[in-house]
């Protein structure tokens, strides 16, 4: 039923790749538009994934096999600026001025990592050895965790909720993945550096996913990672270039001061710039959290306010890879229903 139909998928990360693969299998002609030179999105920047520490390359391999089909065209280094519906069809204008024609559109524009320098009090980009969770993944890929002076960190802190659940940066929502990412990364550091002492500063431990709580358990009892409930209010530097963390140990009801060698900021997720631009230019509704607004939170999680345009993945809300892939599949289901309905 999808034969002869064309679908444009905007974004070539996990959501876009999965959606494109499923659409192609169903018989559609699919074009993926990806702004980077390669597909894979954020997943390709990770080393190992939670909760089972599988290599991200395995997921990338799977996704690559999904889009390795003859009826999929890949357009890289190009962004979509505008999606217009004209007479039941869609015209997408790209940054290179190209016009793409489609029967349906899947928006899979994903997320941007919160720019941690916006939390000025943590001194990212100012104090040495304040890094983000993404920077730490780069170190994991390199296979070594080093301070800027080449030394080995002995004491490492994680700050949860950087740019999430934070009214001051305009993000009231929880990014969902950062808690489990911190736990995963803390364990990984322990495996690299057996002697290192690790402290996670959290507001709440939100370990809601499958096997997350178990990972938290393992981090505590097997790896001796300490969890301190309290949002870090300020980071500064000593004369010896160590970082000073100020938090309240809220469960002890007292302020706590600690010097550490390296601080990892768990950067949250925000609606991507590309997604925002498309939303603005094409009048696609977004929520208060600036992500695309699903038409119905219970049974229309992929539907936009325009029939024929569907959301897949983290452009609709923060989600993990498992959820992203399921979300992409359900977007495809919506596209199929829409196109076989005779485009009402």
């Amino acid at each position: 039923m999808m034969e002869g139909k064309s679908v444009v998928v905007v974004g070539g990360g996990a959501a876009g790749m999965e959606a494109a693969g499923q659409l192609a299998k169903a018989g559609a002609r699919v074009t993926i538009v990806e702004k980077e030179s390669e597909t894979g999105g954020h997943v390709s920047k990770w080393c190992y994934l939670f909760p089972d520490r599988r290599k991200s390359t395995e997921v990338i391999q799977y996704l690559n096999s999904q889009i390795n089909q003859k009826n999929i065209t890949l357009l890289t280094g190009e962004e979509v600026n505008l999606v217009e519906k004209k007479g039941g069809r869609f015209i997408l204008t790209t940054s290179n001025g190209k016009e793409l024609d489609a029967d349906a559109v899947v928006l899979a524009t994903g997320f941007d990592l919160f720019r941690s320098e916006r939390k000025e009090e943590y001194g990212y980009g100012i104090y040495e050895n304040v890094i983000t969770s993404a920077d730490l993944e780069v170190m994991f890929k390199k296979g070594e965790i080093r301070l800027t002076n080449g030394g080995v960190p002995q004491k490492i802190g994680f700050i949860h909720c950087v740019g999430s659940r934070d009214e001051k940066v305009g993000n009231l929502y929880c990014s969902k993945l950062c808690c489990v990412t911190a736990v995963k990364q803390a364990i990984e550091i322990k495996e690299f550096l057996k002697e290192a002492r690790i402290f996670c500063f959290y507001m709440d431990m939100r370990m809601g996913g499958a096997l997350y709580e178990e990972l938290y358990h393992e981090a505590q009892v097997k790896h001796g990672i300490s969890f301190i409930r309290g949002k870090v209010s300020e980071v500064s530097q000593t004369i010896d270039h160590r970082l000073v963390v100020k938090a309240e140990d809220t469960l002890a009801g007292r302020p706590l001061r600690m010097e550490i060698d390296m601080l990892v900021l768990m950067a949250g997720m925000e609606m991507s710039q590309g997604g925002k631009r498309i939303a603005q230019n094409s009048r696609i509704k977004t929520g208060e959290n600036r992500f695309f607004l699903p038409a119905d939170h219970h049974f229309g999680g992929n539907k936009s306010n325009v029939r024929g345009i569907y959301f897949a993945g983290a452009c609709a809300a923060p989600m993990n890879i498992t959820e992203t892939i399921s979300h992409a599949r359900s977007a495809v289901q919506d596209v199929i229903t829409y196109l076989s309905d005779g485009k009402q």
């Binding site: 009892v221 706590l256 001061r257």
Partner: peptide
């Protein structure tokens, strides 16, 4: 009133962690 984590003596805690990991 600050808990000065770095100068506190955590030997008692370590003693317990070792013998009662739970």
């Amino acid at each position: 009133r600050v808990i000065d984590y770095d100068s506190n003596d955590r030997r008692i805690a370590e003693y317990i962690f070792e013998r009662e990991p739970s």
